[in-house]
């Protein structure tokens, strides 16, 4: 079937345009890097550092990045990508470009290591769980068993995500059978629901309570110290800026970095 010449040319042009459009789109948004960082007139070498970090690291890692950039102006840091650790793992395995990986538990790093995309990881911080309630603890919750009170709306992380796995361990350790009103796929959603009054209580990280700026009160449940999430950090194997990546990881593990993490409520690794 021979197409009439005009139709064939038009179709070819349209398809080419479409292909260019698609590759253009993917190239620009494939990585989190927007060409920022290289500001203030100084001709900086290298691309901005791409960091993927778990949702619970948001405040602390922004502070770490700022400190790091002040000390190392030759290594700009792109806006850090925060999300649930599993979601980030999927993106990395799916081909997203990344330099530094910082997750909320060891298990989430598994698929990335298995795919040969992450180097050796080091634990850099730890986090334990707290029961978050609105300020003043209006429902008078004292421990995990109080969460099973009928009519109480309790929100937790879904068992598939790091804070959820920890929650399940915590609850089963205490022998508490909880039917939550909702299971969120990242801890920030739990925080939001308790903060705006849609939930009466939630199980979140100690760092979330600390970062809430007074919008949450935290109750330390019994056995909290036994359920510790160890946060791993690693340099990606295919990192576009390996030197900068290693420098950043060293900074996080240094006493300066650890001080910043402690300020946000993290425990020692």
């Amino acid at each position: 079937m021979r197409l009439p010449r005009r139709a064939a040319t038009a179709t070819a042009a349209a398809l080419t345009a479409l292909a260019l459009l698609l590759t253009g789109c993917s190239a620009s948004s494939g990585s989190a890097a927007t060409v920022s960082g290289a500001s203030a007139g100084k001709a900086s070498p290298g691309k901005p550092l791409i960091v993927f970090a778990a949702a619970s690291l948001q405040g602390s890692f922004d502070a770490l990045a700022k400190s790091f950039q002040k000390a190392n102006p030759e290594y700009p840091v792109a806006p850090i990508r925060y999300d649930g650790s599993q979601a980030l793992a999927t993106q990395i395995v799916g081909g997203a470009s990344v330099d530094v990986i910082a997750f909320a538990d060891q298990q989430s790093l598994g698929p990335v290591t298995k795919a040969g995309l992450a180097g050796k990881d080091t634990s850099f911080a730890s986090n334990t769980l707290r029961i978050a309630v609105p300020p003043g603890n209006p429902k008078g919750i004292r421990d995990l068993s109080d969460l099973t009170r009928p009519g109480l709306k309790v929100v937790i992380c879904a068992p598939q995500v790091p804070c959820g796995t920890a929650t399940q361990t915590l609850l089963s350790n205490a022998g508490v059978q909880l039917t939550p009103a909702s299971e969120e796929t990242n801890v920030t959603s739990v925080v939001t629901r308790v903060e705006n009054g849609e939930a009466d209580a939630g199980l979140v990280y100690a760092t979330d309570v600390a970062a809430s700026g007074g919008k949450l009160d935290g109750i330390t449940p019994a056995g909290a110290g036994k359920v510790v999430n160890s946060y791993p950090i690693a340099v990606a194997n295919k990192a576009p800026s390996p030197k900068a990546a290693h420098a950043f990881v060293s900074f996080v593990l240094s006493s300066a970095g650890q001080r910043i993490l402690a300020r946000f409520g993290f425990g020692k690794p």
Partner: peptide, 21 residues
């Protein structure tokens, strides 16, 4: 919200599973 059997519809179940390991 996302509670199995009550509010976890298929799309939510898929998303939750997808976020798992």
């Amino acid at each position: 919200g996302n509670a199995p059997g009550v509010t976890q519809t298929m799309p939510l179940a898929i998303y939750t599973a997808f976020n798992g390991v």
